[in-house]
Design a protein around this nucleic acid. Structure first.
Lengths: 204, 204
DNA sequence: CGGGACATTGACTTACTTCAAAACTCGTGG
DNA sequence: CCACGAGTTTTGAAGTAAGTCAATGTCCCG
């Protein structure tokens, strides 16, 4: 059973859409984005991955990766060859189940993303994004209220279906309302309940 | 090994978000929509399922279903208890692999949906929707050019992140351009290449 | 044949985008 | 150590795609 560690530097690509799918990757340290692209140059960030998150299983079906995975800071990933996983999963049911759960969680989170993209206004999208990020950091033992964004306004915009200017303006608007404090990529969430209220659709 | 068949009439619910996850379902005959909803009444159609499609695996992680599955016409589904599947998958690797592939295909298709929702104009969304539907029907042996929509304009709109009026207007616009012929839920795709051209971003 | 749900179309409004300019951040080299 | 410049973020003003509101048309199903 070979499980190896691999380093990916800031800006480097772990795998590209179209690459042969041979392994999945678990983020050990660092931060990634996943991007889908069309032949005509259209792009969409479909997710951000941090420590513990699994990447690459969207390639199981076709045998080819479906997204580009790009490091947003120097990172280390654990390489999990799919063949090994399949064989091992048969002998160790909990592992099998873990993979199923992880994939099902990814599907749920994609559905959340669709809900954001399909039916929310810019303020609600940004609030949802920040609350979700804050929550994920908290679960990993980091502060839920004080965060440093690893991605640019443009990357946030792509993920949320907004232009970078709109993301920036929305941050400013939420700050003006006293819900948070922004300074470039430093974010302080000063009123999480208020943010949740925005997310729930208050026009306030 | 118990695998049973279940009938779901038009408008009925197969399972609801929050229901205990005990089984997955494969559509035998008929047509379904999957809907996510928030406490505050916001709704989003996340997919449409037809013969052969699997539904419900988004519930594996939490043990609760994550969407409502609602029949858009009288339908029959094959009930696949998850416990059985897990056990059987261990003995029959191809079955295991089939589940993995199906989930990974769902993730890919969700990424496509995010791309549509996040970065396409109404015409491109509608074109993408029709082409994808046409393709799925063709793969099942139906005509790729002549289709009867099972869902309302509102449901299409929810899926595409548009209002029903916009969907209707967009159909009319594409018809005026000679790419298709609409009459209520009857659609004739007269120029699939042209539609694909619209999808690729032609402003024509 | 009539009523209710669904679809189309038009006129007007709005949230977000686009285009443009200024300010901040940070690494590099003079 | 400070100045420069590239990349990013913020902010403003004007434009536009899609939303909203409202009226009319069409199709079933009882």
């Amino acid at each position: 059973m070979v499980i190896s560690l691999r380093t990916v530097l800031h800006g480097e690509t772990l795998f590209r859409a179209g690459d042969r799918f041979e392994a999945m990757f678990q983020v050990w340290t660092g931060f990634f984005k996943a991007v889908v692209a069309t032949s005509r140059g259209r792009e969409q960030v479909t997710g951000f991955q941090m420590a513990g998150d699994l990447m690459g299983f969207e390639g199981i079906d076709s045998g080819l990766h479906g997204v580009d995975a790009i490091a947003l800071e120097d990172s280390q990933v654990c390489v999990i060859p799919y063949a090994n996983l399949e064989a091992l999963g048969r002998e160790v049911p909990p592992l099998q189940r873990h993979l199923h759960r992880t994939m099902s969680r990814e599907i749920l989170s994609d559905h959340d993303a669709m809900l954001r993209l399909g039916s929310m206004h810019s303020e609600q999208r940004v609030a949802a994004f920040l609350l979700s990020l804050s929550d994920r950091l908290r679960k990993r033992g980091f502060s839920a209220s004080s965060l440093v964004l690893r991605m640019s306004r443009e990357e946030i915009g792509s993920y949320l279906g907004l232009k970078l200017e709109t993301v920036s303006r929305t941050f400013s608007k939420l700050q003006a309302r006293g819900l948070l404090f922004v300074r470039q990529r430093q974010i302080q969430i000063t009123d999480p309940a208020g943010l949740r209220h925005v997310l729930d659709g208050a026009t306030v």
